[in-house]
Amino acid sequence: MVKNNKLFILIIISLILGIGLGAIVHYQFPDSIDAFSKNIKLLGTIFIRLVQMIIAPLVFSTLVVGIAKMGDMKMVGRVGGKAMAWFISASLVSLLLGMVLVNFFAPGKGTNIKLDVNDSAKELVEKTHDFSLEEFVKHVIPKSLFEAFATNEILQIVIFSILFGVALAAFSKKEAKPIIKLLDTTAHVVLKMVSYIMWTAPLGVLGAVASAIAKH
């Protein structure tokens, strides 16, 4: 609890420092805004990349161990069903809340902001128009576990982890124990890494806020 409080305080301090630093550069050093924003933004990029780095191994190890330790497939089904229900419900609530708030407050209304849509964004929009059931199935089911890990396709990793966990649970406890123990240890190691990475969150906040304030 004390560590969490310290981290929270550091994040708040970083937020205030980011606002102050960004404002100083914006008003006092307008010629250096682009260079400052580009360099300070690296702090946020480092934090985001560190978080992205641990998502795949964390999801794989925790899911496989959780399913394999349950053993009973009926229990796995019940837990999985409840988890999916909570996930879908939370997603729908967050989407509806976002839509309501955006339509009510109308952020950006009255401002003269010109959006620069680059080629990559246009290509992404075109891809969404061509989206089909076949493309959805290809996106969900991994062609290769290593490819899914390399590209951080979390949904594909989840699908493989569930199948792997169910298959592992079908073995006897004696046969499955070495793999479960290995993955359980891996999960604990990754969780320890998470605790280390979270201490870089204040730097990420500082970089992101200072960059945004300096530009605008």
Rank of each mutant, 00 (worst) to 15 (best):
N152L: 06
K143Y: 00
V93D: 03
M53P: 04
I54F: 13
L92S: 02
I197Q: 03
D72L: 10
S91Y: 07
L145Q: 09
I9L: 14
L101T: 13
E123M: 12
L183S: 02
G18H: 06
A106N: 13
L43R: 04
S14N: 06
A35W: 13
N112R: 07
K192E: 12
L101F: 14
A106D: 07
M193N: 04
N112I: 10
Q28H: 13
S120I: 09
G108M: 01
S132D: 14
I9F: 11
P202W: 04
K6D: 06
E175Q: 08
S61H: 02
F164N: 10
H216S: 10
Q52Y: 14
I55A: 11
N39P: 00
K127F: 09
K181H: 00
F146A: 03
A150G: 15
G18I: 06
N39W: 14
A85M: 09
S211C: 02
H216R: 05
L10N: 12
Q28L: 15
E175Y: 03
G71L: 06
M53Q: 10
A106S: 12
Q156N: 05
V205F: 13
V140F: 05
N39D: 11
M73N: 06
M1K: 10
A167D: 01
A187E: 07
G44P: 01
N5L: 14
T151A: 12
L101D: 05
V59Y: 04
M193W: 14
I162Y: 07
A121N: 04
A68L: 02
N152M: 09
I88M: 05
G207M: 06
F105C: 08
V2T: 15
L92R: 00
T45P: 01
D119N: 11
D34V: 07
E123Q: 14
D184M: 01
L101W: 11
F87H: 04
F131I: 12
